[in-house]
Amino acid sequence: MAFWTILVKDLRLELRTRESLATMVVFAATIILLFAFAFSAAPAQLRSFAPGLIWITYFFTAVLGLLRSFGRENEQDAYDLLLTAPLDRGAIFLGKMAAFFILLLAAQLVSLPFFILFLDLPLWKAPTAFALILVITDLAIAAVGTLIAGMSLRSPAGETLLPILLFPLLTPILIAATEATDAVLAGQPLEEWDFWLMLLLTFFGVFVLAGTFIFDYISEQ
């Protein structure tokens, strides 16, 4: 019940303002256009650095979205409304995580055509495999990101603290997502890269459990 209330509230705020989605999509599109026009890479070269480029772009896109998701909680101290409510704070974590996952996925779906169009990436050749990587990586990013943002952005130095805590934890997720995407673009079968999916799922599971149980403690100042 509380989970749905938080999820719907976050999505409604985003639909009302479109602040996060617009920032995330514009950022992703800018990076893609910069790469497309600043480097005249041959298709083979492009193919070699494309997986890393995709995930570096979405890494920073996710950070922008997280800053906005928790930043709007601090306007008018609205977050205090959630903290003082008689609800399991694990539901705050899960609701905000689910809303951020949907937002990140939406930003990616809008910006992915830019990758295909301007960088000529054959992502459409294995749409199911790439969609699987996208969804599982986003779940892992949302779980880690929501937990760390929930902890750091309550602090007065939150915007400084967030990247310091978040970047090292997201690095293994980015490596796994990049390796899996590289394998998909090379046409390898699932058995060759399922290890990376397992790693991503492990991150997601561990951080969802951690967030659900410790959000009560870390969300208070």
Binding site: L13, E75, Q76, T84, A85
Partner: peptide
């Protein structure tokens, strides 16, 4: 637990509301 919070309310310096709603 959290049920003890149902007996209390808080109104801070700022109104604890979401400006976009």
């Amino acid at each position: 637990g959290y049920r003890w919070r149902s007996a209390m309310v808080y109104l801070g310096h700022r109104a604890n509301l979401y400006p976009a709603l």
